[in-house]
Design a protein around this nucleic acid. Structure first.
Length: 1397
RNA sequence: GGGCCCAUAGCUUAGCCUGGUUGGAGCGCCCGGCUGAUAACCGGGAGGUCAAGAGUCCAAAUCUCUUUGGGCCCA
């Protein structure tokens, strides 16, 4: 069944409602169950890190995931969608440190590792919950109830198992190396944990004097002075040429060795003006040269250091031709230095402790000083000791700890490594097997990163992480625990123990070799390793294999490009270690959401835009649509509010189209399932077939782009479909058809096509915008509980019609051209155009035009289309022959002017035809004159008022000739517009009456006379006169289409008098006007008049005369309202009731009898019964009860059904069609009913409305109210309807007879009342109440009045109306959509009325 | 310093792979229309050295190279 949607698209409310529906009906669970038997699709969620609220990038990430999960489900895949959270690691430790106010590891240990770790866990859990809520707000469907968390024992076990695998394959081993180190966190860092940013550092050139010749120095360059105490060698490139050079200046000279090519540069830097190359030395020959290291005297280690290469020049081909070409080597302070040191037997001397301070290996003046601090002291000291050649500063990129931002240092320690270098080739092969989108994400980026990868240091000297499962013994024995079972043999193991530090540290093993105690290496794992095992950890592997065998490996993942070094990599490495293959098969690498200026969003920049804010303002669907529409997924998106706004606008237009469709379809009770497109084939207009074709094309393209991950293109296809095809074209074309007779096939065809288009769009859009599509689906179909349970709609290529598509494009172009031409000539679309002439480019295009002629006629507002067959000229084009006197004169001299005259007088076409064939001849004075092509040129001119233009279908001529009729109507409208403008200018009340005097040409006045009445009614004019000199309150002159208009306008000041007179109950507007025009402008004026005198007022309707007298007599009588009438008790005979009951789905004779015997002897009683009540009746099952309630609340007992066989109407108490005898089928209503959830309207307790009562009827959409109203009317009561709906629609839908309908609208027509004008509304209502003793008023749309005024004002109106109703023994029904008010207001309203329904 | 990606109107972008009339849209701006989708909707207009430079070609937004700026990932 088609249900009309709410008039306005309100995403906040809609999305909340949809999510409630999902929750209440357990739609997510049911959808998964529906697909349980489909092919498996293992999706793995890259776990976000639980350290803050989600940002827009996370929103995009989850949106992409959700979209594809939904899409795959629609394709019937059984998708595994467990969300994950990454919950260990330094970031959380840092946050917790801040919250408990500690800074160092020492302080943490004082605080207690157990307390610290518990706090970390709590912190992570809190954020996990918070983030989950935010993801739900986005409409993401994942298995939120059972996420995988990296902190569970199951997860830890999987990580351990993986490390054990690595150990067994000799890929896990401790190693002493120089690594990046964070001095604040006091732990080693992996490459992935270092962030680079610009920083200023000293840039110093230092003299290393040669041992054999201290007057000559090697010049080295460094940005880290603090590494100089650790210097053990200098590296030179063996293949480059160096120079020994004397640098000189006025102040002295010195001799240094630097790279030859850098001599000049170095000299300048040292402030020298001249230089002399003393010797050129090949790098090779420098090798072995001994120098004096700067801290030789001070540092015990340096003095003691032994080795062939200590304090000598060593060769290295990594030395670059920069700075001096000589590189200071400190093997304890740099990875490359370390490697070189290993090669040349230099120990990694590292006088720096874990907090980044110098150790006691250095003299007291440095010991205990942080290296950063030491820099300036070292610089000073080197200056004093004349070893400093030059000091400067340099801005360069320097590594920082990813969490605390401290500058990293390099230290030499022993850490545990995964030997990536040994499995690199396998990893590279696997990268090539994975399907990457875009392909360079894999072939370039991931490949490049992996090629350069080094062994992965996975040990961290911290607390909150997966414990390194390595136990060691003093004797050197090592044990790696690969499972909880392995752990059970340890001392201190307790069942189900917490596997985190410090608890795990208590577990020890007896060494199998020496029987001493083995203790755990106290490190925890690099948190980047955690997520690497996600694909098997979440399946419970290795503890259980079943899930693993069923799902693994993962089919698809999607994350941002920063995960190249992150999750893409960690999974690849872990997978290759554990299973010798990549754990995922396909990757979509997406971009980042940058701020509006293209900068990454970060707290430190202060440019973070929160997704919640965006959702609050525009809705999750708009945000999702924006994110996916704006860019290719793999490109960064610079976030723009405008973009989201625009997305919302698109959705709004879609909503409006749906509103349009459902309005008419629901009025006509259109059943899309009752007809097929094939069945309607004969009734389809060309534009319908066009729409059908467009729909199929759209479906196919969306699928195509989804498959290629070009979501932006898919979104644009859908957007174009909504805006261009539906809203701007098809809806425009079919609008008129909506108003034709019910059951008209032509209309039915439009309904069906529009419905099909909307349903198809809803389906393909469902993965992108899950909320709005759900709401639309439930209104236009709703046969399943959710749009997300539907199958993906394949495109029906047999319905494609490329040619028609092309034709329509041509027609659209034509209409556009006409619109454009109208605009440039200032001819409005509402002035019909006399004709257009199409000169078709070919037969095909002429056919096209003819086929779609009706479209052109209506959309271009043209009276006639004329066609000129291809190849022919339009007969009305005038061809002119223009003689060229110059050319003619040269040949025929004296005859030239005569020839010219003759040429002009002959038919130009004939001349041209002959010339085209060869030549044209004239005879003058017996001479044959031959006209050569150069002697004449041709011009063509169009008839007056015709404009010609080329278009893709040929040539188009538009005839703008304005006939008398067109002109008359046009000018009348112009005058109306001018008068209305003048009314506005003097700020006249829109309801005030005026007198208008017009001076214009005789022609215009003639036109105006034709339209006289129309002009008056459109402008609330009581007197329209044509005079020579218009006079009045306000005069103006206008120039319209070359005509002069002088208009004067005078307010008749009727408004106030009208208002006063209309307080007379029942007095008509015309009556009031008549009184005023007769000079009776107030109630006081009327009092002295006799009934006869009143009767003599010209133009006063007889009925009004009575009302006035009545009013004058009644004065202030008070009538006490009676509220005590008993409610009706209508029982029905069993035989009468049962047939009604039998129409309820699931009902049968036995059940119906039982119901009756249980006391439900009337329809009303059944309607009033709650589910609980009905359940008490013996034999009533839950499902049956649900059906009864659903049936009753949908008005089933009152509804007729259209017979599928013959179309006749079947009354509500019949099961067979009275006309053809076919049995009607009743479908279950329960599913639809459940959907609304919270807002189920209360059922009307009685069928009869009580006189003198005011009712408040709470309905989402006024249905029941109108039924009650109809009933009251049927009993002969006079009715009065006030509604914000369009009156004709109401009339079409309900049988209201001649009942007056007052339209609440800002349109400003006579039959309408502006919603702000409560005064007028109350006057009209009171008037009705007074004139019809015992009438019934339906006031539909109370919320509209409330939003346009304020609540209390409306409440006062309700009070006064209620009293009037009671006095007049009438009935007032106030219809209200309860969801638009808050509870408090609703309460107040309910107090004021006599009964609430 | 290296790898990858990006650069088109004030903003967001299509077109580039496969070179070819006048580089399309949307938003914003200006002007207008409609008032039976109306807290909407529709039309028109102005606005572009296609980041800069060089090359290939009859022809370059498109292909190639260089430079500049931005993003990510690394040294």
């Amino acid at each position: 069944m088609i249900k009309q949607v709410q008039a306005n698209y309100n995403p906040a409310e809609l999305e909340k409602r949809v999510r409630e529906h999902w929750a209440n009906a357990e739609v997510y669970r049911k959808t998964k169950e529906l697909r349980a038997s489909g092919p498996n699709f293992y999706f793995v969620d890259g776990p976000p890190y639980t350290t803050g609220a989600i940002h827009l990038g996370t929103s995009w990430n989850k949106t992409l995931k959700d979209t594809y999960i939904r899409y795959r489900r629609m394709q019937r895949y059984n998708v595994r969608d467990q969300p994950g959270y990454d919950m260990h690691g330094l970031p959380i430790e840092v946050k917790v440190e801040q919250s408990i106010g500690v800074k160092t590891k020492k302080e943490i240990e004082e605080y207690g590792i157990d307390r610290f770790v518990s706090t970390c866990k709590q912190f992570a859990m809190d954020f996990q919950k918070r983030m989950t809520e935010q993801f739900k707000e986005l409409g993401v469907w994942m298995d939120w109830d059972t996420p995988y968390l990296t902190i569970t024992s199951q997860y830890v076990e999987a990580a351990w198992w993986t490390l054990k695998r690595a150990y067994d394959k000799e890929l896990l081993a401790p190693s002493n190396r120089v690594l990046s180190w964070c001095p604040r966190c006091e732990t080693a860092l992996a490459e992935a944990e270092i962030e680079y940013r610009d920083e200023k550092d000293p840039s110093i050139y230092v003299r290393f004097p040669l041992k054999d010749d201290e007057s000559t120095s090697l010049l080295i360059w460094t940005t880290t002075p603090w590494t100089l105490p650790g210097n053990l060698a200098v590296a030179a490139h063996p293949d480059l040429r160096y120079a020994k050079v004397r640098l000189s200046s006025a102040e002295g000279d010195e001799t240094v060795i630097v790279l030859e090519s850098l001599v000049e540069q170095v000299g300048e830097l040292g402030g020298y003006e001249g230089y002399e190359v003393l010797d050129l030395i090949e790098g090779d020959d420098l090798i072995g040269m001994e120098y004096i290291t700067p801290f030789l005297g001070d540092v015990e280690y340096q003095r003691q250091a032994t080795g062939k290469w200590v304090h000598r020049v060593i060769p290295s081909s990594t030395v670059a031709a920069e700075n001096t070409g000589l590189v200071h080597i400190a093997p304890g302070h740099g990875p490359e230095d370390f490697e070189l040191g290993k090669e040349f037997g230099l120990e990694p001397f590292c006088p720096v402790d874990e907090t980044g301070r110098f150790t006691k290996d250095l003299p007291v003046r440095y010991a205990g000083m942080s290296v950063k601090e030491a820099n300036k002291h070292i610089i000073e000291e080197l200056k004093e000791r004349k070893l400093m050649y030059s000091v400067g500063t340099l801005t360069h990129r320097y590594g920082h700890c990813w969490r605390c931002d401290s500058g990293i240092i390099y230290r030499n320690t022993t850490q545990w490594f995964l030997k990536i270098t040994q499995i690199k080739n396998l990893m590279l092969e696997e990268i090539e097997k994975i399907h990457w989108t875009p392909d360079w994400a894999g072939s370039s980026r991931e490949y490049d990163w992996t090629v350069n990868a080094r062994d992965w240091c996975i040990s961290r000297q911290r607390y909150w992480g997966i414990p390194l499962p390595v136990w060691t013994c003093q004797c050197g024995e090592t044990k790696v625990v690969g499972s909880i079972t392995d752990l059970e043999s340890g001392n201190g193991y307790r069942k189900d123990m917490e596997l985190h530090r410090p608890w795990i540290d208590a577990v020890t093993f007896k060494c199998p070799r020496c029987s001493k105690q083995m203790r755990r290496v106290p490190d925890v794992l690099d948190v980047w390793f955690d997520s690497g095992v996600a694909t098997w950890a979440q399946l419970g592997f290795p503890r259980s294999r079943a899930e693993f065998d069923r799902w693994w490996p993962c089919k698809w993942i999607t994350e941002a490009h920063d995960q190249t070094r992150g999750w893409f990599y960690s999974q690849l490495a872990a997978g290759c270690i554990a299973f010798d293959r990549a754990p995922y098969e396909a990757v979509l690498m997406h971009g980042w959401v940058l701020d509006p200026n293209g900068q990454p969003m970060s707290k430190s920049r202060g440019n973070v835009i929160e997704p919640e804010k965006v959702i609050k303002d525009y809705g999750a669907d708009a945000l999702r649509f924006y994110l996916m529409r704006t860019n290719a997924p793999w490109e960064d998106t610079s976030f723009q509010w405008e973009g989201v706004k625009n997305a919302r606008k698109t959705l709004n237009i879609l909503w409006n189209v749906v509103n349009f469709a459902t309005t008419y379809m629901s009025i006509d009770s259109f059943e899309p399932g009752s007809v097929s497109l094939e069945g309607l084939k004969a009734a389809l207009r060309p534009e319908d077939r066009w729409m059908v074709s467009r729909t199929e094309k759209m479906k196919g393209e969306v699928a195509k782009f989804l498959n290629s991950y070009e979501l932006h293109k898919a979104c644009r296809i859908m957007e174009d479909f909504v805006l261009e095809d539906l809203s701007r074209w098809y809806v425009r074309l079919i609008r008129d058809r909506m108003w034709s007779e019910k059951g008209d096939l032509d209309k039915l065809a439009a309904y069906k096509v529009l419905h099909e288009a909307l349903l198809s769009l809803t389906k393909v859009m469902a993965p992108f915008c899950p909320h709005i599509t759900e709401e639309i689906y439930q209104h236009i179909d709703g046969s399943l509980e959710s749009v997300h349970m539907l199958d993906w709609p394949g495109a029906d290529t047999t319905r494609l019609d490329e040619r028609l598509d092309q034709s329509m494009a041509t027609v659209q172009e034509l209409v556009d051209l006409v619109t454009k031409a109208r605009q440039s000539r200032n001819i409005k679309l509402r002035w019909p155009m006399k004709r257009v002439v199409v000169r078709a480019a070919n037969n095909d295009s002429m056919e096209v035009m003819k086929q779609l002629e009706s479209v052109i006629l209506s959309q271009a507002n043209v009276k006639v289309i004329e066609y000129i067959p291809p190849g022919q000229e339009w007969g009305e084009i005038v061809l002119n022959a223009e003689p060229n006197p110059n050319a003619i004169g040269k040949v025929y001299r004296q005859w030239a002017s005569k020839i010219a005259v003759l040429l002009k007088s002959r038919p130009a076409k004939q001349i041209r035809d002959c010339i085209e064939k060869g030549s044209y001849s004239l005879g003058i004075e017996g001479q044959m004159i031959k006209i050569e092509p150069n002697m004449v040129s041709f011009t063509s001119s169009l008839p007056p008022d015709v404009e010609g233009v080329k278009f893709s279908g040929g040539d188009l001529y538009m005839d703008f000739e304005i006939t008398q009729e067109i002109e008359a109507e046009g000018f009348a409208r112009e005058l109306i517009r001018r008068i209305q403008q003048m009314r506005k200018d003097i700020k006249l009340n829109v309801e005030e009456y005026v007198r208008v005097e017009v001076k214009a040409s005789a022609k215009l006045i003639e036109f105006f006379r034709v339209w006289h009445d129309h002009i008056m009614s459109e402008t609330r004019c009581r007197q329209l006169e044509f005079v020579d000199s218009p006079k009045g309150d306000h005069t103006a002159s206008w120039e319209v289409e070359g005509e002069k208009l002088h208009v004067s306008l005078t307010s008749l000041h009727f408004k106030q008098a009208m208002d006063e007179l209309l307080t007379i109950n029942g007095l008509s507007q015309d009556g009031a006007l008549a009184l005023i025009e007769a000079g009776h402008r107030s109630l006081t004026d009327l009092r002295p008049l006799s009934e006869e005198q009143i009767g003599n007022v010209p133009g006063l309707p007889k009925a009004d005369v009575k009302k006035i007298s009545h009013y004058l007599e009644r004065a202030d009588e008070a009538i006490v309202p009676s509220k005590d009438a008993a409610k009706p008790q209508g029982g029905m005979a069993k035989e009468a009731l049962v047939p009604f009951l039998l129409r309820v789905p699931r009902m049968n004779q036995v059940k119906a009898d039982m119901l009756y015997e249980a006391g439900y002897d009337s329809i009303d009683k059944i309607k009033a019964a709650s589910k609980e009540d009905l359940r008490k009746v013996k034999g009533m099952g839950e499902k049956t009860v649900d059906e009864i309630v659903a049936y009753a609340s949908k008005g089933g007992f009152e509804a007729t059904i259209k017979c599928e066989g013959c179309g006749a109407l079947v009354p509500p108490d019949k099961m067979t069609c009275p006309s053809c005898g076919a049995r009607v089928s009743i479908e279950s209503l329960v599913e639809e009913e459940d959907k609304g959830g919270a807002h189920k309207p209360a059922l009307a307790p009685e069928a009869e409305l009580e006189r003198s009562f005011t009712y408040l009827i709470k309905e989402e959409k006024a249905e029941r109210s109108y039924q009650l109203f109809e009933k009251a009317l049927a009993k002969g009561m006079k009715g009065f309807c006030v509604t914000r709906n369009y009156p004709l629609k109401i009339k079409a839908k309900w049988n209201l007879g001649e009942t007056p309908i007052l339209w609440l609208s800002n349109v400003g027509k006579e039959s309408s009342i502006r919603p702000k004008d409560l005064e007028k509304l109350s006057v009209s209502l009171e008037q009705f109440l007074a004139q019809s003793e015992g009438g019934v008023i339906l006031l539909d749309g109370l919320e509209y009045l409330i939003t346009n005024n304020n609540f209390l004002t409306v409440l006062r109106l309700v009070q006064s109306l209620r009293d009037q109703v009671a006095i007049n023994r009438s009935i007032l029904m106030l219809v209200l959509n309860p969801s638009t008010l808050d509870a408090h207001e609703l309460n107040l309203l309910e107090k004021e009325v006599d009964a609430t329904i």
